[in-house]
Amino acid sequence: MKKEEIAERVIRVTARELKMSEDRIQPEHHFAHDLGADSLKAIELVAAFEEEFELDLEEEEALKVKTVDGAVDYFAELLPE
């Protein structure tokens, strides 16, 4: 999958799960510090990404991803072009 498409989908899912508009989300944003994702929201986000990308993620690894950019890189590695 192309990295641009992954980035678009990561932002869309993040906006939906954290109940905010997509244009508020920047690539360098930290899910917890900038976007307010608490520990429960973080797990819900991972669950939403699993659904979006139809993946069964390694939970501990997925929860180590802290930023929007980091998530894009993480999925780009799992979903090569």
Partner: peptide, 14 residues
């Protein structure tokens, strides 16, 4: 089941 699989139940609990 992992945390992501049961998180919907945790949301209901909260």
């Amino acid at each position: 089941l992992s945390l992501t699989k049961v998180v919907k139940i945790q949301r209901w609990v909260m």
